[in-house]
Design a protein around this nucleic acid. Structure first.
Lengths: 222, 222
DNA sequence: TAGATTGTTAATCGATTAACAATC
DNA sequence: TAGATTGTTAATCGATTAACAATC
């Protein structure tokens, strides 16, 4: 669910299935949480019960991660957190640009959680010259004319697309031309990219529509 | 993917598979877009090509929707938009509350797209009494003590969870106690609900981690 | 030790896709 | 008409789960 969760185009080499990667992110959130409560061990069944999965699914997913469980004990939570963090690339700092200084773009730019986890928004870009030059928190809003420079100079690896839907494909084109190979699409639009570019879709509007679809099927009062 | 897309617990009666519903939302976004360009017909192949699917998948998905295609022509775009809108419950107004007046909660509350599509945030709730009484745009921030009243009085159907992860489950519990049966979870935490409650997860942090997972696997310069 | 848990194989399940008769 | 496209069935594919030997 991706909202996404969601469908992703991943470059050829990838072994770990899409669903497994999605669940690894949940395992990481869980292990962080239980470690705050000083839990030292976590079995595949513990994880499965917490996330409404089967223990077989958890164990299979963890074969994609550099961790070995211990009979009778399960997984050492410290090791597990480290292994998951590494597998997800969350053990390094990432530099991110946001395209679109609307409400969503501004919110993500200021979202503390991102920075805490190592995803640093270095700049926001907008085509509205009235916004260019201003700041969102400490992050500058810039014009698209300097996008290429900033990406190259700051070695930005990830682009977040938070523009209106009809501008999404163009935003993706610009970013890929600048050498970005990881895109997070927050718009309802589908975007197409050349091979070797990873795109993850996270569409909140789509999620709301999924919800209203489900609600519609429910009996009015049951 | 969804964020993702993502895994959902749906009440028993539902026929349409999760992935199909997710794709229906994409079809709707697409048909709206092409209708702006005055396209009158859309074949399953047109849709498939635009969204990187096969035409068989599209036709099968559309069997869940009240629409009939026409040999040689495909689907009437006006009818298709109407049928998809109805299937997704997007033909009515929905009332929504947001829990958590942080950056994300504030952004969603102001997100014009939501209101345009019929999802109306009637109030934001926060446990921080410093925020209670203020407004986000035109939407009031209220204390959790009046949540139940507001939900009942305004007949709110959907709750958006935008609190810190460690408060997510509690937020879900409160909302379900108030009679809400559709939850959109924006936190990294997993939340568990009783049967008959529909939960959709849209986890942007998770999507970023999926991206960094993929990027990690790429050759540094290829 | 006995019993619990792992890692992995094989079986099951469900979703995607190919194929095609019916249609216009 | 010929050919393109639908709706649907059957085949394929891939992901989940059950089962179990190995382990401690």
């Amino acid at each position: 669910m991706p909202n996404s969760p969601q469908p992703v185009s991943r470059p050829g080499g990838t072994q770990t299935p899409y669903w497994s990667v999605l669940r690894l992110t949940q395992y990481l959130a869980l292990v962080k949480e239980v470690r705050e409560r000083d839990a030292k061990w976590l079995t595949s069944k513990d994880i499965a019960d917490a996330l409404e999965l089967t223990s077989a699914t958890v164990r299979k997913d963890l074969t994609h991660v550099d961790i070995l469980g211990k009979t009778h004990w399960g997984y050492d939570t410290e090791e597990l957190e480290h292994a998951l963090t590494t597998a997800l690339g969350a053990d390094q700092q990432w530099r991110v640009v946001v395209l679109g200084a609307g409400n969503l773009g501004r919110a993500l730019t200021q979202h503390e959680e991102f920075r805490r986890q190592g995803y640093n928004v270095v700049a926001v870009f907008d085509s509205d010259s009235g916004k260019v030059g201003s700041k969102i928190g400490k992050t500058p809003v810039m014009g698209l004319d300097v996008l290429d420079d900033v990406i190259k100079k700051e070695q930005v690896q990830i682009g977040i697309i938070a523009v209106p839907p009809n501008a999404a494909q163009e935003a993706a084109d610009i970013l890929t031309r600048c050498g970005i190979r990881g895109l997070l699409n927050l718009t309802t639009a589908h975007i197409v990219t050349p091979p070797g570019i990873s795109v993850v879709h996270s569409r909140i509007m789509s999620s709301l529509q999924q919800l209203s679809h489900d609600l519609r099927l429910m009996r009015p009062s049951t």
